[in-house]
């Protein structure tokens, strides 16, 4: 999509203290991130110089190849 430039989700998961090793439940991660986004002041989460917005993060989590992308990002 034109309105997003991809930023690895790992940084966000680490920032929120959400584990991403071993068996993952996307549904649980979504719940945790949902509550983190609603807790944040403007609806975004800023980690270092990167801004995460809920729309892009949820779209990433809903991708059928999310696990593959996560594995790839863990490697790099």
């Amino acid at each position: 999509m034109a309105n997003k430039h991809y930023i690895s989700i790992i940084r966000l998961l680490r920032h929120c203290g959400i584990g991403y090793d071993g068996e993952l439940s996307v549904s649980k991660i979504k719940k945790q991130l949902n509550v983190e986004f609603s807790y944040s002041a403007n609806g975004y989460i800023e980690v270092d110089v990167y801004t995460y917005n809920k729309n892009n993060v949820m779209e990433e989590l809903e991708l059928p190849i999310f696990y593959t992308r996560l594995r790839y990002h863990k490697k790099i």
């Binding site: 999509m1 034109a2 309105n3 997003k4 430039h5 403007n42 609806g43 975004y44 801004t51 917005n53 809920k54 729309n55 949820m58």
Partner: peptide
């Protein structure tokens, strides 16, 4: 025109 945020994206949005 260049799209910043596409129609039907969920709010809020922020982009640089």
């Amino acid at each position: 025109l260049e799209v910043i945020f596409a129609r039907n994206s969920l709010l809020p949005q922020k982009r640089t």
